[in-house]
Design a protein around this nucleic acid. Sequence first.
DNA 1: CATCATTTGTTGAACATTCATTCAGTATGG
DNA 2: CCATACTGAATGAATGTTCAACAAATGATG
Lengths: 228, 228
Amino acid sequence: MLETVTSMKTSEARDILAETARKGDAEKRGRKASKEVRQLQLIEATIDSLAKRGYAETTMADVADGAGLSRGIVNFHFESKEKLLIATLQHMYDEYSAHWRASLQKAGDDPARQLQQLVWADFDRSICNKRKLAAWLAFWGEAKSRPTYQALSSSRDNYYQQVFIDLCTTLKQSGSYAYEPQVMALALSAMLEGLWLRLMMGTEDTTRETALQAANAFLASAFPKHYG
Amino acid sequence: MLETVTSMKTSEARDILAETARKGDAEKRGRKASKEVRQLQLIEATIDSLAKRGYAETTMADVADGAGLSRGIVNFHFESKEKLLIATLQHMYDEYSAHWRASLQKAGDDPARQLQQLVWADFDRSICNKRKLAAWLAFWGEAKSRPTYQALSSSRDNYYQQVFIDLCTTLKQSGSYAYEPQVMALALSAMLEGLWLRLMMGTEDTTRETALQAANAFLASAFPKHYG
DNA sequence: CATCATTTGTTGAACATTCATTCAGTATGG
DNA sequence: CCATACTGAATGAATGTTCAACAAATGATG
């Protein structure tokens, strides 16, 4: 089951801060060492606020309070609220990207296994938890009316989509399937995003486990020779 | 292709107003007859604003201006901004519901045809256009942090989901498929929502036509005996 | 090593703006 | 002339941003 949103607040940011202070010898602790750590801490607090209150109700005071810092701090590290939110979205994309590429790496050379791994990656705990899903949804809700968000999204999404298309093309050849690779890739990626959407909305009947079952059922019916 | 958002403003509301004034003899025209018509007009203006500016930037002044009326008008007809938004969401759900049920009706008794019609219904022009999709997305983005929206959504969504499950169960029997009906219904509905999401985000490569192709490809691979 | 100066991070009150809401007054249909 | 729809200026609350003062770390100096 997905964990609850309300509990974690600054804990995660504090972990990061502690970890950085531990392993980074070059990094100085305390007040000065902040810059990057503080920014991360504020970004985490922003994700918390987005998840708990939604985009429209996320305020600078909320973020500052969530990080346990003063009101003016955000404008010091990020120039404005808008830039904070863009940095937060960027951070979430970077994290997703890294996880995605790592999964692809881990899968080796077999395209069937690669596709399977990519699907699984989307439902990994580290990526797919209530807090982050809620933050994603908050951004998506505003993305269409904000060119900046849209630009950030579309370039990466197009890349992922192309990888899916390539994998579908390869599998079609080795399995003699009838589908059009572009079409099947769209159906697949749409379903993954739709399952995310379900998880984000927090309906009782959809959990990470059932979502993964659905994704596997799709693979089995679309590529029976590979996943049947 | 989907039409653009920016152009229609009050035109649609004016059509409705004109239409109501035309066919409703009992309804009085002009200033007095307003109540219901004005409310509809304001709801349409709200959808316009949600589509154009997003949830967070939708203001009462925006809605009033969009409807070509004065600033205080919304608080007169709806009590508050929150109630306006709830009424708007309700209106969109009612419209979707009506269209959905009509499609099911039209399909007759054949379950395969029923499922096909329901899928098509989701991509009908009257439901699936940029303006309304953008408004849906705006609501979804806020739904998780607003119990009222969530309550409005979940009850209906559960009903639709159950119909999908029932249809999948019936098709499984008549086609001797191996899947679990609940799982396949989740995969199907998730894909439909995911395709909506793609259309909402306005990526170039996804149009209503390609989305429908993807949906059909899914049906063909999941229920080959019925749609192959 | 002690002291001072400088740089850098941080604070919180003040400010300006935006926005939902209110309401006394106006216009209009019956 | 009454009831009702409507207006738009006034109000107050919420919020992003600024900035002068403060604190801590670092560096320079003797």
